[in-house]
């Protein structure tokens, strides 16, 4: 059974006095397996947040199904197993962190004896252990994000849904957040997060989907996404003058007596491999340059326009 299973999800918004239809999601299909870290990528306005809100029951689908551990997302049973961190969260300003987490624990129906120990643990985990007496209105953006993570984990959920969890954090905060996510993964939790910071996604996810204009364009493991097309090969050559490279490839760097050239495909590589020794050069190494997630992402986004 998958942690999240989305089947043919459509969302059409009607807004205004004379309703105008705006189609945001166009038949999304997506499976998130148990125990994996799944990155949900896409440019602004692609429908990431709408999809996420449908998963957590903030938005009702126009058509299609969202199942969480096999149960419909609109049921209480499904939501018992999820924790949700919204994008740029905002909480009751007049509460202190402990009061706020107690409120969330009560919403989840946690017994007091459980919440009494879990709340300090969570505050410690997200790095707010020494700020328990500060009212939320005095929190910085990073601290609010940390508190948001704590409330998402209050019911010890099996599935965490995080909307842009790393935005608004400084580099240290991002590192800490990544560590929290990886720690959760090690404890067997499933993590589904959206992001536009591809490097962060690349560092922690198993699989990713790329959403463009309300459609899932690509989905797969990082290797599947990035290895499908090799962006080219880097060849390092010694004992060779730069002017004798002509026609073989593009010179990307020279260092001491080593020249680095790049060829864009297999034919180019074959030609270089036979020509360079013939011209008296020594090939030191050939490194296939895989596409980065960013290359794949940009490729998909540009297809649209």
């Amino acid at each position: 059974m998958d942690a999240i299973s989305i089947r043919n999800l459509w969302k059409v918004f009607r807004s205004g006095f004379i309703p105008r239809r705006r189609t945001v999601l166009r038949g999304i299909n997506l499976d998130v397996r148990q125990g994996e870290v799944f990155a949900f990528l896409g440019p602004n306005g692609a429908g990431k947040t709408t999809t996420i809100k449908t998963i957590v029951n903030l938005i009702r689908p126009t058509n299609g199904d969202v199942l969480i551990f096999g149960k419909k997302a609109s049921t209480i049973d499904a939501r018992r197993r999820i924790g949700f961190l919204p994008e740029n969260p905002y909480f009751y300003q007049y509460l202190r962190p402990v009061e706020f987490l107690q409120f969330n624990a009560d919403l989840c129906g946690l017994p007091r004896r459980v919440s009494r120990t879990r709340i300090p643990e969570l505050l410690q985990l997200v790095g707010l252990g020494d700020r328990t007496q500060l009212p939320i209105r005095k929190f910085s953006k990073g601290m609010v994000q940390r508190l948001g993570m704590a409330q998402a984990m209050i019911n010890d959920p099996d599935l965490l849904i995080l909307d842009e969890p790393l935005s608004g954090l400084d580099p240290i905060g991002r590192k800490e957040f990544r560590d929290i996510i990886l720690d959760l993964r090690d404890r067997g939790k499933t993590i589904f997060f959206s992001s536009h910071i591809l490097q962060d996604a690349e560092m922690i996810c198993h699989r990713a989907a790329i959403l463009v204009n309300g459609e899932v364009r690509r989905i797969g493991t990082l290797e599947e996404l990035t290895a499908q097309d090799i962006a080219g090969y880097e060849i390092s050559i010694q004992g060779f003058d730069a002017d004798r490279i002509s026609g073989l490839g593009r010179i990307i760097a020279t260092q001491d007596k080593t020249i680095f050239i790049q060829v864009s495909d297999q034919t180019g590589l074959d030609r270089a491999l036979s020509e360079i020794p013939a011209r008296g050069g020594q090939i030191q190494s050939v490194i296939p340059r895989r596409k980065t997630l960013e290359d794949v992402f940009m490729g998909e986004v540009q297809k649209k326009s």
């Binding site: 049973d77 949700f84 919204p86 905002y90 919403l107 019911n155």
Partner: peptide, 14 residues
């Protein structure tokens, strides 16, 4: 308006 509801409705409540 303040989006505080975003963390309430996803909780296991009706």
């Amino acid at each position: 308006e303040h989006k505080t509801i975003y963390t309430i409705i996803p909780k296991p409540i009706h």
